[in-house]
């Protein structure tokens, strides 16, 4: 095998490796937005009981107030990374899934978030009996699994933080 053949072999290997790497990172990005059913959502929420306070935020790319408050919630997760788990759930239509993924990437969300599946009513009632279905919707749950507060409409960093502090130290 001469030097030219070796160089060619090396280039082919690099090319193949780059394909495998890019596919794996694409899968990783995709796996960060996971479909969720109402039952699975309950399991996810319950898994943090006794460990962290939880903020559930239901949003959609078409929802202007959701997009406005979104960066504030990302900031909260960063500032309270040890004590709080933010569970984002996209309520976008299935054909807007890529748009949702793109938005999450732009916002620097590097943890697993969810994509609502199934019928509206079961989903709404699992998130909260008090929720009428209007977006955005947020619900703060304390470390013991008790609801601190929930609301429709967007909120400020200050409001989120006030409830989260209560949820961390109930």
């Amino acid at each position: 095998m001469n030097i030219r053949q070796l160089r060619l072999k090396y280039i082919v290997w690099i090319f193949l490796l780059s394909i495998v790497t890019s596919e794996s990172s694409a899968q990783q990005a995709d796996s960060k937005l996971q479909d969720i059913t109402p039952d699975q959502l309950q399991e996810v929420v319950d898994s943090y009981q006794g460990e962290k306070a939880v903020l559930i935020n239901v949003w959609a790319t078409w929802c202007a107030p959701c997009i406005e408050e979104f960066p504030e919630i990302v900031k909260l997760q960063r500032n309270y990374s040890e004590e709080l788990k933010v569970i984002f759930i996209s309520a976008d239509f299935p054909n807007s899934r890529d748009k949702a993924k793109e938005f999450l990437k732009e916002q620097g969300v590097d943890w697993i978030t969810y994509f609502k599946t199934g019928k509206d009513e079961a989903f709404i009632n699992t998130v909260s009996e008090k929720w009428t279905g209007a977006l955005p919707f947020s619900k703060v749950i304390d470390i013991n699994g008790n609801v601190v507060d929930s609301w429709e409409k967007k909120a400020s960093y200050k409001k989120f933080e006030r409830h989260i502090k209560t949820a961390i130290n109930p």
């Binding site: 929802c63 309520a91 509206d120 009513e121 989903f123 709404i124 009632n125 279905g133 977006l135 409409k153």
Partner: peptide, 9 residues
């Protein structure tokens, strides 16, 4: 009564 998702007023 029923519920559905929708745009907030």
């Amino acid at each position: 009564t029923t519920k559905s998702l929708g745009c907030t007023i």
